[in-house]
Lab assay of single mutants.
Amino acid sequence: QEELVKAFKALLKEEKFSSQGEIVAALQEQGFDNINQSKVSRMLTKFGAVRTRNAKMEMVYCLPAELGV
């Protein structure tokens, strides 16, 4: 569980995922086979993730800066 949270936060820091499906796929690539869209959705809510525009003006998920991840 701890490893999943770390990987999840690291992915969001990249600010390149525009959908929950993309986050699920990226986590599965890292070996988290039991991850699915509903789990990702709950984690996004739990950590207060928001959708914002990145440098390329794409809408992407990211974590609020005050979490200091």
Rank of each mutant, 00 (worst) to 15 (best):
Q1R: 11
E3P: 09
L4N: 00
K6W: 09
K6Q: 11
K6P: 04
K6C: 15
A7V: 09
A7H: 06
F8C: 15
L12T: 01
L12M: 06
E14M: 15
E14A: 12
K16C: 15
F17A: 04
F17E: 01
S19T: 15
Q20T: 12
Q20E: 15
Q20A: 14
Q20H: 09
Q20K: 15
I23E: 00
I23C: 02
V24C: 05
A25Y: 08
A25M: 11
L27A: 00
L27R: 00
Q28G: 05
Q28N: 08
E29T: 09
Q30T: 04
Q30V: 07
G31M: 02
N34I: 05
N34W: 14
I35S: 01
S38Y: 13
S38Q: 13
K39H: 15
V40M: 03
V40D: 00
V40G: 00
S41F: 07
S41L: 08
S41P: 00
S41C: 04
M43F: 05
M43E: 01
M43C: 02
L44Y: 01
L44F: 03
L44G: 00
K46C: 09
F47P: 01
F47Y: 12
F47C: 03
F47V: 12
F47R: 01
G48A: 05
G48F: 04
G48M: 04
A49W: 03
A49G: 05
A49F: 04
V50D: 04
V50W: 04
V50F: 09
V50H: 08
T52E: 07
R53P: 09
R53I: 14
N54H: 03
N54Y: 02
A55I: 08
A55H: 10
K56F: 10
K56L: 09
K56S: 10
M57W: 08
M57A: 10
E58G: 05
M59E: 10
V60E: 02
Y61V: 03
L63D: 03
P64K: 06
P64N: 04
P64E: 04
A65F: 12
A65D: 15
A65T: 11
E66S: 09
G68D: 14
G68T: 09
V69Q: 12
V69D: 15
V69Y: 04
